[in-house]
Protein backbone atom coordinates (compact mmCIF):
# COMPACT_ATOMS: atom_id res chain seq x y z
CA UNK A 1 0.00 0.00 0.00
CA UNK A 2 2.71 2.40 1.02
CA UNK A 3 4.84 1.46 -1.92
CA UNK A 4 1.94 2.09 -4.26
CA UNK A 5 1.31 5.48 -2.75
CA UNK A 6 4.97 6.37 -3.11
CA UNK A 7 4.96 5.24 -6.70
CA UNK A 8 1.91 7.33 -7.54
CA UNK A 9 3.35 10.30 -5.72
CA UNK A 10 6.67 10.10 -7.48
CA UNK A 11 4.94 9.74 -10.84
CA UNK A 12 2.83 12.78 -10.12
CA UNK A 13 5.96 14.66 -9.18
CA UNK A 14 7.67 13.65 -12.39
CA UNK A 15 4.65 14.69 -14.43
CA UNK A 16 4.33 18.07 -12.80
CA UNK A 17 8.04 18.77 -13.12
CA UNK A 18 8.23 17.81 -16.76
CA UNK A 19 4.84 18.91 -17.97
CA UNK A 20 4.75 22.56 -16.98
CA UNK A 21 7.60 23.65 -19.24
CA UNK A 22 6.11 21.56 -22.04
CA UNK A 23 2.94 23.69 -22.07
CA UNK A 24 4.15 27.22 -21.50
CA UNK A 25 7.41 28.98 -20.92
CA UNK A 26 7.62 30.40 -17.38
CA UNK A 27 6.49 34.02 -17.40
CA UNK A 28 7.99 36.69 -15.22
CA UNK A 29 5.66 37.20 -12.31
CA UNK A 30 4.65 40.37 -10.55
CA UNK A 31 2.91 40.06 -7.20
CA UNK A 32 0.46 42.88 -6.60
CA UNK A 33 -1.05 43.63 -3.19
CA UNK A 34 -4.34 45.56 -3.18
CA UNK A 35 -7.33 46.04 -0.92
CA UNK A 36 -11.13 46.04 -1.25
CA UNK A 37 -13.33 48.91 -2.33
CA UNK A 38 -14.23 51.18 -5.19
CA UNK A 39 -10.77 52.75 -4.98
CA UNK A 40 -9.26 49.51 -6.27
CA UNK A 41 -11.44 49.40 -9.38
CA UNK A 42 -8.39 49.96 -11.65
CA UNK A 43 -6.85 46.74 -10.32
CA UNK A 44 -10.01 44.83 -11.23
CA UNK A 45 -9.99 46.36 -14.69
CA UNK A 46 -6.31 45.58 -15.23
CA UNK A 47 -6.97 42.05 -14.15
CA UNK A 48 -9.96 41.41 -16.37
CA UNK A 49 -8.47 43.13 -19.41
CA UNK A 50 -5.13 41.36 -19.10
CA UNK A 51 -3.23 44.64 -19.02
CA UNK A 52 -0.15 43.04 -17.46
CA UNK A 53 -0.27 39.96 -19.65
CA UNK A 54 -0.04 41.98 -22.81
CA UNK A 55 3.48 43.00 -21.78
CA UNK A 56 4.34 39.35 -21.15
CA UNK A 57 4.09 39.64 -17.37
CA UNK A 58 2.06 37.27 -15.22
CA UNK A 59 0.32 39.20 -12.43
CA UNK A 60 -0.38 37.50 -9.12
CA UNK A 61 -3.23 39.34 -7.38
CA UNK A 62 -3.42 39.51 -3.62
CA UNK A 63 -5.99 41.27 -1.47
CA UNK A 64 -5.49 42.45 2.09
CA UNK A 65 -7.74 43.98 4.75
CA UNK A 66 -5.73 47.06 5.58
CA UNK A 67 -2.78 49.19 4.52
CA UNK A 68 -0.88 47.75 7.45
CA UNK A 69 -1.36 44.25 6.08
CA UNK A 70 -0.24 45.34 2.58
CA UNK A 71 2.83 46.87 4.17
CA UNK A 72 3.64 43.61 5.96
CA UNK A 73 3.19 41.72 2.68
CA UNK A 74 5.70 44.06 1.00
CA UNK A 75 8.25 43.75 3.80
CA UNK A 76 8.07 39.97 3.90
CA UNK A 77 8.36 39.68 0.11
CA UNK A 78 4.86 38.31 -0.35
CA UNK A 79 4.25 41.17 -2.76
CA UNK A 80 6.43 43.12 -5.21
CA UNK A 81 4.20 46.16 -5.45
CA UNK A 82 1.29 47.32 -3.37
CA UNK A 83 -1.24 50.01 -2.65
CA UNK A 84 -1.90 51.81 0.61
CA UNK A 85 -2.75 55.21 1.98
CA UNK A 86 -0.02 57.83 2.27
CA UNK A 87 0.12 57.60 6.11
CA UNK A 88 0.81 53.83 6.31
CA UNK A 89 3.40 54.33 3.57
CA UNK A 90 5.08 57.12 5.51
CA UNK A 91 5.07 55.10 8.74
CA UNK A 92 6.88 52.32 6.87
CA UNK A 93 9.27 54.77 5.23
CA UNK A 94 9.99 56.31 8.63
CA UNK A 95 10.89 52.87 10.01
CA UNK A 96 13.28 52.27 7.15
CA UNK A 97 11.24 50.35 4.60
CA UNK A 98 13.09 50.90 1.31
CA UNK A 99 10.16 51.92 -0.89
CA UNK A 100 9.07 54.87 -2.90
CA UNK A 101 5.93 56.04 -4.60
CA UNK A 102 5.60 54.71 -8.13
CA UNK A 103 2.27 56.38 -8.82
CA UNK A 104 -0.54 58.28 -7.21
CA UNK A 105 -3.62 56.11 -6.95
CA UNK A 106 -7.03 57.72 -7.16
CA UNK A 107 -8.51 60.80 -5.58
CA UNK A 108 -11.79 60.04 -3.85
CA UNK A 109 -14.05 61.78 -1.36
CA UNK A 110 -13.38 60.77 2.24
CA UNK A 111 -15.47 61.84 5.17
CA UNK A 112 -16.77 61.36 8.67
CA UNK A 113 -20.42 60.27 8.57
CA UNK A 114 -22.90 60.12 11.45
CA UNK A 115 -26.59 59.39 11.88
CA UNK A 116 -26.87 61.51 15.02
CA UNK A 117 -28.42 64.91 14.27
CA UNK A 118 -26.82 66.31 17.43
CA UNK A 119 -23.32 65.65 16.14
CA UNK A 120 -22.66 68.66 13.94
CA UNK A 121 -18.97 69.12 14.55
CA UNK A 122 -16.15 67.34 16.36
CA UNK A 123 -16.85 69.54 19.39
CA UNK A 124 -20.12 67.69 19.91
CA UNK A 125 -18.43 64.32 20.47
CA UNK A 126 -18.65 62.99 24.01
CA UNK A 127 -16.14 60.42 25.30
CA UNK A 128 -18.61 57.57 24.77
CA UNK A 129 -19.32 58.45 21.11
CA UNK A 130 -17.33 55.93 19.11
CA UNK A 131 -15.77 56.75 15.75
CA UNK A 132 -14.90 53.80 13.51
CA UNK A 133 -11.73 53.88 11.41
CA UNK A 134 -10.26 50.89 9.54
CA UNK A 135 -7.18 50.76 11.73
CA UNK A 136 -4.87 52.93 13.81
CA UNK A 137 -2.45 54.81 11.56
CA UNK A 138 -4.76 54.54 8.54
CA UNK A 139 -5.42 57.58 6.35
CA UNK A 140 -8.85 57.92 7.98
CA UNK A 141 -7.27 57.98 11.42
CA UNK A 142 -4.73 60.61 10.36
CA UNK A 143 -7.44 62.74 8.73
CA UNK A 144 -9.45 62.53 11.94
CA UNK A 145 -6.37 63.63 13.87
CA UNK A 146 -5.92 66.55 11.44
CA UNK A 147 -9.53 67.57 11.91
CA UNK A 148 -9.18 67.20 15.70
CA UNK A 149 -6.15 69.47 15.66
CA UNK A 150 -8.03 72.11 13.67
CA UNK A 151 -11.24 72.00 15.65
CA UNK A 152 -10.21 70.80 19.11
CA UNK A 153 -6.59 71.94 19.30
CA UNK A 154 -4.96 68.54 19.65
CA UNK A 155 -4.46 65.74 17.13
CA UNK A 156 -4.98 63.21 19.94
CA UNK A 157 -8.22 64.74 21.23
CA UNK A 158 -10.34 61.93 19.77
CA UNK A 159 -7.87 59.05 20.15
CA UNK A 160 -9.98 57.53 22.90
CA UNK A 161 -13.07 57.65 20.71
CA UNK A 162 -11.71 55.58 17.86
CA UNK A 163 -12.67 51.99 17.24
CA UNK A 164 -10.84 49.86 14.71
CA UNK A 165 -13.32 48.18 12.36
CA UNK A 166 -13.12 47.06 8.75
CA UNK A 167 -15.27 49.24 6.46
CA UNK A 168 -18.02 46.69 5.76
CA UNK A 169 -18.57 45.97 9.48
CA UNK A 170 -18.45 49.63 10.43
CA UNK A 171 -20.87 50.50 7.61
CA UNK A 172 -23.32 47.85 8.80
CA UNK A 173 -22.93 49.00 12.40
CA UNK A 174 -23.54 52.64 11.51
CA UNK A 175 -26.58 51.93 9.37
CA UNK A 176 -28.07 49.77 12.14
CA UNK A 177 -27.06 52.54 14.61
CA UNK A 178 -25.35 49.97 16.84
CA UNK A 179 -22.24 50.62 18.84
CA UNK A 180 -20.64 53.38 16.81
CA UNK A 181 -21.76 56.98 16.35
CA UNK A 182 -19.65 57.90 13.34
CA UNK A 183 -17.54 56.30 10.61
CA UNK A 184 -14.57 57.83 8.79
CA UNK A 185 -14.93 56.18 5.43
CA UNK A 186 -14.51 56.02 1.68
CA UNK A 187 -16.56 54.98 -1.37
CA UNK A 188 -18.66 52.95 -1.81
CA UNK A 189 -19.34 52.84 1.97
CA UNK A 190 -19.34 56.63 2.15
CA UNK A 191 -22.00 56.82 -0.56
CA UNK A 192 -24.03 53.98 0.95
CA UNK A 193 -24.11 55.68 4.32
CA UNK A 194 -24.87 59.13 2.94
CA UNK A 195 -27.81 57.62 1.01
CA UNK A 196 -29.49 56.76 4.33
CA UNK A 197 -31.99 59.32 5.56
CA UNK A 198 -30.59 61.64 8.21
CA UNK A 199 -26.99 60.55 7.72
CA UNK A 200 -24.69 63.50 7.20
CA UNK A 201 -21.05 64.47 6.89
CA UNK A 202 -19.34 66.10 9.85
CA UNK A 203 -15.93 66.42 8.26
CA UNK A 204 -14.85 66.03 4.64
CA UNK A 205 -11.50 65.62 2.95
CA UNK A 206 -11.23 69.08 1.39
CA UNK A 207 -12.16 70.95 4.57
CA UNK A 208 -9.53 69.01 6.52
CA UNK A 209 -6.67 68.84 4.06
CA UNK A 210 -7.36 72.03 2.15
CA UNK A 211 -7.32 70.42 -1.29
CA UNK A 212 -7.67 66.95 -2.84
CA UNK A 213 -5.05 64.35 -2.04
CA UNK A 214 -4.13 60.91 -3.31
CA UNK A 215 -6.16 58.48 -1.31
CA UNK A 216 -3.65 55.72 -2.07
CA UNK A 217 -0.22 55.47 -3.57
CA UNK A 218 1.26 52.63 -5.61
CA UNK A 219 4.55 51.51 -4.08
CA UNK A 220 7.55 49.56 -5.22
CA UNK A 221 10.76 48.75 -3.42
CA UNK A 222 14.03 50.28 -4.52
CA UNK A 223 15.30 46.79 -5.33
CA UNK A 224 12.30 46.01 -7.50
CA UNK A 225 12.69 49.32 -9.29
CA UNK A 226 16.43 48.89 -9.85
CA UNK A 227 16.61 45.21 -10.65
CA UNK A 228 13.40 44.77 -12.63
CA UNK A 229 13.06 48.03 -14.56
CA UNK A 230 10.84 46.50 -17.21
CA UNK A 231 8.41 45.06 -14.67
CA UNK A 232 8.40 48.42 -12.93
CA UNK A 233 7.45 50.26 -16.13
CA UNK A 234 4.80 47.68 -16.92
CA UNK A 235 3.33 48.23 -13.47
CA UNK A 236 3.06 52.00 -14.04
CA UNK A 237 1.77 51.62 -17.57
CA UNK A 238 -0.81 48.94 -16.87
CA UNK A 239 -2.34 50.81 -13.93
CA UNK A 240 -2.36 54.05 -15.92
CA UNK A 241 -4.14 52.35 -18.78
CA UNK A 242 -6.78 50.88 -16.45
CA UNK A 243 -7.48 54.29 -14.95
CA UNK A 244 -7.73 56.01 -18.30
CA UNK A 245 -10.16 53.34 -19.47
CA UNK A 246 -12.43 53.85 -16.46
CA UNK A 247 -12.45 57.61 -16.93
CA UNK A 248 -13.44 57.39 -20.55
CA UNK A 249 -15.82 54.41 -20.27
CA UNK A 250 -17.78 55.07 -17.06
CA UNK A 251 -20.91 53.18 -18.16
CA UNK A 252 -19.05 50.12 -19.32
CA UNK A 253 -16.91 50.24 -16.21
CA UNK A 254 -20.03 50.40 -14.04
CA UNK A 255 -21.47 47.33 -15.81
CA UNK A 256 -18.26 45.47 -15.16
CA UNK A 257 -17.75 46.59 -11.57
CA UNK A 258 -21.35 46.26 -10.34
CA UNK A 259 -21.22 42.50 -9.60
CA UNK A 260 -17.85 42.88 -7.86
CA UNK A 261 -19.42 45.23 -5.31
CA UNK A 262 -22.83 43.53 -5.31
CA UNK A 263 -24.45 46.80 -6.41
CA UNK A 264 -26.70 47.56 -9.34
CA UNK A 265 -25.06 48.96 -12.49
CA UNK A 266 -26.99 52.24 -12.08
CA UNK A 267 -25.81 52.64 -8.53
CA UNK A 268 -22.22 51.86 -9.48
CA UNK A 269 -22.36 54.41 -12.26
CA UNK A 270 -23.77 56.98 -9.85
CA UNK A 271 -20.91 56.25 -7.48
CA UNK A 272 -18.31 56.47 -10.25
CA UNK A 273 -19.70 59.86 -11.20
CA UNK A 274 -20.02 61.14 -7.61
CA UNK A 275 -18.50 64.54 -7.24
CA UNK A 276 -14.83 64.27 -6.35
CA UNK A 277 -14.14 60.83 -7.80
CA UNK A 278 -11.01 61.01 -9.92
CA UNK A 279 -9.14 57.99 -11.20
CA UNK A 280 -5.72 59.55 -11.63
CA UNK A 281 -2.09 58.57 -11.18
CA UNK A 282 -1.15 62.13 -10.31
CA UNK A 283 0.28 62.38 -6.78
CA UNK A 284 -1.35 64.88 -4.43
CA UNK A 285 -0.51 65.76 -0.87
CA UNK A 286 2.56 63.57 -0.28
CA UNK A 287 4.44 66.18 1.72
CA UNK A 288 1.36 67.55 3.44
CA UNK A 289 0.73 64.25 5.20
CA UNK A 290 4.41 63.91 6.10
CA UNK A 291 4.48 67.39 7.63
CA UNK A 292 1.39 66.81 9.72
CA UNK A 293 2.40 63.33 10.84
CA UNK A 294 5.79 64.58 11.97
CA UNK A 295 4.22 67.43 13.93
CA UNK A 296 1.69 65.11 15.55
CA UNK A 297 4.37 62.58 16.42
CA UNK A 298 3.27 59.73 14.17
CA UNK A 299 6.59 59.72 12.33
CA UNK A 300 10.02 60.92 13.42
CA UNK A 301 11.19 62.72 10.30
CA UNK A 302 10.00 64.48 7.17
CA UNK A 303 11.43 63.76 3.71
CA UNK A 304 13.80 66.59 2.76
CA UNK A 305 12.47 66.43 -0.76
CA UNK A 306 10.14 64.35 -2.89
CA UNK A 307 13.19 62.45 -4.17
CA UNK A 308 13.38 60.58 -0.90
CA UNK A 309 9.92 59.11 -1.30
CA UNK A 310 9.14 58.99 -5.04
CA UNK A 311 10.61 57.43 -8.18
CA UNK A 312 11.69 59.35 -11.27
CA UNK A 313 8.40 59.05 -13.16
CA UNK A 314 6.60 60.72 -10.25
CA UNK A 315 9.35 63.31 -9.84
CA UNK A 316 9.24 64.25 -13.51
CA UNK A 317 5.45 64.38 -13.37
CA UNK A 318 5.53 66.85 -10.50
CA UNK A 319 8.47 68.71 -11.94
CA UNK A 320 10.59 71.35 -10.29
CA UNK A 321 9.68 74.82 -11.47
CA UNK A 322 12.42 77.41 -11.45
CA UNK A 323 11.48 80.59 -9.63
CA UNK A 324 8.78 79.32 -7.32
CA UNK A 325 6.58 76.27 -7.02
CA UNK A 326 4.32 75.14 -9.83
CA UNK A 327 0.65 74.35 -9.14
CA UNK A 328 1.28 70.63 -8.96
CA UNK A 329 4.28 71.13 -6.71
CA UNK A 330 2.12 73.22 -4.40
CA UNK A 331 -0.47 70.44 -4.31
CA UNK A 332 2.09 68.17 -2.61
CA UNK A 333 1.88 70.29 0.54
CA UNK A 334 -1.17 71.38 2.49
Amino acid sequence: MRKKCLLILSMLLIFTVFQVPAYSAPKEKIKIAGQFGLVYAPLMVARSQGLFEKYGLEPVWKEYGSGGAVREALISGEADVGFMGIPPFLIGWDKGCPWKVALGFVVVPVGLVTYDPDLKSLKDFKPEDKIAVPSPGSIQHILLAMAAEQELGSPNALDNNIVAMPHPDACAALISKKGIKAHFTTPPYLFEELSEPGFHLIVDDISVFGHPFSFNVGLASQDFHDQRPVAYSVFVSAISEAMAWINSNKEEAAEFLAPEFKLSAEKTLRYLEWEGMNYTTAPYGLMGFAQFMKEAGYISRVPASLEEIAFENVLSFVGSRAGGLSEIEMLQGR
Binding site: S66, G68, R71, P88, I91, G92, D94, K95, C97, P127, K130, S135, P136, G137, S138, D159, N160, N161, I162, V163, A164, M165, P166, D169, Y298
Partner: peptide, 23 residues
Protein backbone atom coordinates in the same frame (compact mmCIF):
# COMPACT_ATOMS: atom_id res chain seq x y z
CA UNK B 1 -10.09 41.43 15.66
CA UNK B 2 -12.13 44.51 16.42
CA UNK B 3 -14.34 46.05 18.97
CA UNK B 4 -11.57 47.60 21.00
CA UNK B 5 -11.18 51.28 21.08
CA UNK B 6 -8.58 53.79 22.06
CA UNK B 7 -10.12 54.74 25.38
CA UNK B 8 -11.04 51.28 26.48
CA UNK B 9 -8.45 48.91 25.16
CA UNK B 10 -6.16 46.47 26.88
CA UNK B 11 -2.99 44.74 25.79
CA UNK B 12 -4.65 43.39 22.65
CA UNK B 13 -5.35 46.92 21.48
CA UNK B 14 -1.80 47.94 22.42
CA UNK B 15 -0.32 45.22 20.23
CA UNK B 16 -2.79 45.93 17.45
CA UNK B 17 -1.98 49.63 17.45
CA UNK B 18 1.76 49.07 17.58
CA UNK B 19 1.45 46.76 14.62
CA UNK B 20 -0.15 49.49 12.52
CA UNK B 21 2.47 52.00 13.52
CA UNK B 22 5.11 49.39 12.70
CA UNK B 23 6.59 49.46 16.15
Amino acid sequence: VFGASGGEGGLGWFIYKKRFFME
